[in-house]
Amino acid sequence: MIEARGLTKRYGKTTAVDDLSFDVAAGRVTGFLGPNGAGKSTTMRMILGLDNPTAGRVTINGKRYHELHHPLRTVGALLDAKWVHPNRSARAHLNWMAKSNQIAERRVDEVLDIVGLTSVAGKRAGGFSLGMSQRLGIAAALLGDPEVLLFDEPVNGLDPEGILWIRKFMHRLADEGRTVFVSSHLLSEMALTATELVVIGRGKLISQSSTADFVARASENTVKVRSPQNDRLRDALEQASAELTAAEDGLIVSGMDSAKIGEIAAENGLVLHELSPQQGSLEQAFMQITGDSVEYHTGIEAEVAQVLEPTAR
């Protein structure tokens, strides 16, 4: 159980994390979603006590990270797979970590086995591929058999095989009853891994809900229509003030349900080849909800709209 309350981090004038409050429930995978630069990594570093919050607090099972006794036994984390000395062997890296939290040495062999690195345990970590480094990072996270696990962008830069492996692994950890908090800017990935979502943009909380709710809320009233008389259909729908987006071979209609679209088509004697309410992808939902929170948004469109508005009236 992770609780963040009013968590804020400022670097000079830049506010990386802004009054962020959320809960990560025990025993499931919670996704931490946001565009790059939204403050996910900073938040994770604050959870682990590496960065000091400017304001607010974050606790794990009611305690601040500093108050945990042998923290690796409560919280395992993979923030950056490259946080390993390149000349140290995988086993030596895990050995010192185990020693620091008085974890038995045979546990090192166990976790090496779990992530499949036993055969290269004596090799220097600097020679590892990204996928192997990632596995070593996961081994380190699992070392203390912790009930809470934090992963920051675990699939970043991995090949499909590696991604699949990590994804399966997350499920396995959750199935074992652990609390998993995993960040990503890849929405499709979160749809497959997370049951709960904490979504942030520009350091602010945008939503906290189940993944299903998040998608449903963002993709309400989107219907795909296909017609051989596409242009006439568009005119008819525009007159009924529906919002239209051109799709590959038809139209995506928002702000109007499928019944109403069907009626409009019938009134105008138009043939429909397809009329299907869309199960919105997480990608679309995300863009829709975080649309104006994207950090490096150019803002040109908004400015143009503001300038044009008075003349349009």
Partner: peptide, 18 residues
């Protein structure tokens, strides 16, 4: 400095917060 360079300083403080 190598601990800060390779990030093991963070791993260390994660293992031992004091």
């Amino acid at each position: 400095t190598t601990e800060y360079h390779w990030g093991t300083a963070r791993t260390t403080f994660q293992a031992v917060p004091s």
